[in-house]
Amino acid sequence: MAKKISFTLNGKAVNFEVDVRESLLDVLRYRLGYTGVKKGCGVGECGACTVLVDGMTVDSCIYLAVWADGREIRTIEGIAQDGELSVVQQAFVEEGAVQCGFCTPGLVLTTTALLESGREYTREELKRELSGHFCRCTGYKNILKAAEKSLEAGKRQCEE
């Protein structure tokens, strides 16, 4: 059951034929080669497969590919611009929030969405907003610090 869909992927228009049985994860990772979209659990528990759909975080393993039709999709591959790390990526590096890196694309995308929301978050709210990601390495402390740093750096950028 093939279906033609069109969507924007990291700013570029894409026309692609997908099978209605495919998840967005299947299409992005295995057919288009966007390997920054990680496959962890496959059932919405771990957040490794997180992508942004119209600026909103979703677990792409439980999001059908046909639902991407007409939408703007962003993956970790589209976050750095002209070889420059984004504010969020830079903060993750500086805070040592990356160990094996498997959870990192998802966490960077979630933090990017928080930054772009323009809202302010208390520490407790930030923990809540990051809770859809499993990290088996870091113990989360540095991730939380990186997220806080990202939001502060983002705020400074807006004020400048």
Partner: peptide, 12 residues
């Protein structure tokens, strides 16, 4: 509403 799942689940 905010007690269920995690952020990505609540978005969907």
């Amino acid at each position: 509403a905010v007690s269920m799942g995690g952020p990505q689940i609540r978005n969907v």
